[in-house]
């Protein structure tokens, strides 16, 4: 990314706001599920995995219980593989052998068209029959193409479709926060 592009970015959430949102989501999850019983927090590769780890950390702080986590790579379930100009990288999926009876919190950084979540739901179904699947995202930026909504959202943004929402996470990008980048055109 060159300096010019960075200058045009608009910051929406700083580190503090971002973590406050995540902590609130942790509270809401516990509230809605009446505790941490049968919870399984599954992050979607790649940044969803880091966010899932944080959520689990906050849940531990609040409830004193370490809920199990999993990783899910949805590349092999995408509906745009034959249209994508870039070769997608397949990353690891790591879930308990059976998710039957679990209450799954699916975690991703940005909810946009809903296609990623559609793929993730298909993938999860292949691992068993969970009791319930809920969706937690840091940013919901609208423009849904599927009948999918977030159960927990850190921030709801109204964006232009051609804009880009960039989530940065310390573990991956060295800093926390959310930015909006105007379309490159």
């Amino acid at each position: 990314m060159n300096a010019g592009a960075k200058n045009r970015e608009r910051r929406i959430l700083d580190a503090q706001m971002m973590n406050r949102s995540m902590r609130r989501i942790a509270h809401e999850i516990l509230e809605q599920n009446q505790g941490s019983e049968a919870l399984l927090v599954v992050g979607i590769q790649t940044r969803g995995v880091n966010l899932a780890q944080r959520l689990v950390g906050y849940i531990k702080e609040i409830e004193g219980v370490r809920v199990p986590t999993g990783k899910l790579d949805i590349t092999l379930y995408r509906d745009d593989l034959r249209h994508t100009p870039v070769q997608p990288i397949v990353r690891s999926t790591d879930l308990p052998p059976d998710v039957t009876g679990k209450r799954i919190i699916l975690v991703d950084d940005v909810l946009f068209t809903g296609r990623t979540i559609r793929a993730a739901l298909d993938a999860l179904i292949d691992f068993g029959r969970p009791d319930r699947i809920m969706l937690a995202v840091l940013v919901d930026r609208g423009h849904r193409e599927f009948p999918i909504r977030a159960d927990f959202a850190g921030k709801t943004l109204s964006t232009k479709k051609e804009e880009k929402v960039v989530v940065r996470i310390k573990e991956v990008d060295g800093t926390d926060g959310v930015w909006i980048e105007p379309s490159s055109q």
Partner: peptide
């Protein structure tokens, strides 16, 4: 490798 360890050993790619 992990796909072959699943109960449903299949992805739709």
């Amino acid at each position: 490798k992990e796909i072959s360890e699943r109960q449903i050993k299949k992805v739709p790619v």
